[in-house]
């Protein structure tokens, strides 16, 4: 997706076991920070289709 112009950091992948609640919280923080830093998403949103 980055190839197409979505900024790196909008899409995240992680691996958290069901016992790792602390890692879960840590990843939520990381992801939120990363997306916050990028600001609002301008691409790929369709509030309404733009047509003639």
């Amino acid at each position: 997706m980055e190839h197409m112009g979505i900024e790196p950091g909008r899409i995240h992948f992680s691996w958290v076991s069901s016992a790792e609640s602390t890692k879960f919280v840590q990843v939520v923080n990381e992801v939120t920070e990363a997306v916050k830093a990028l600001g609002p998403n301008n691409h790929f949103i369709t509030k309404e289709a733009k047509v003639a």
Partner: peptide, 28 residues
């Protein structure tokens, strides 16, 4: 942020975090 969580892994972790009264951002 839309979080797609696996029923068996991260969803469980989220549940556990809740049970443990952990604080995390409300953006997901």
């Amino acid at each position: 942020i839309v979080a797609f969580l696996c029923n068996w892994c991260s969803y469980g972790a989220a549940d556990l975090a809740g049970v443990g009264r952990m604080q995390y951002p409300p953006n997901i």
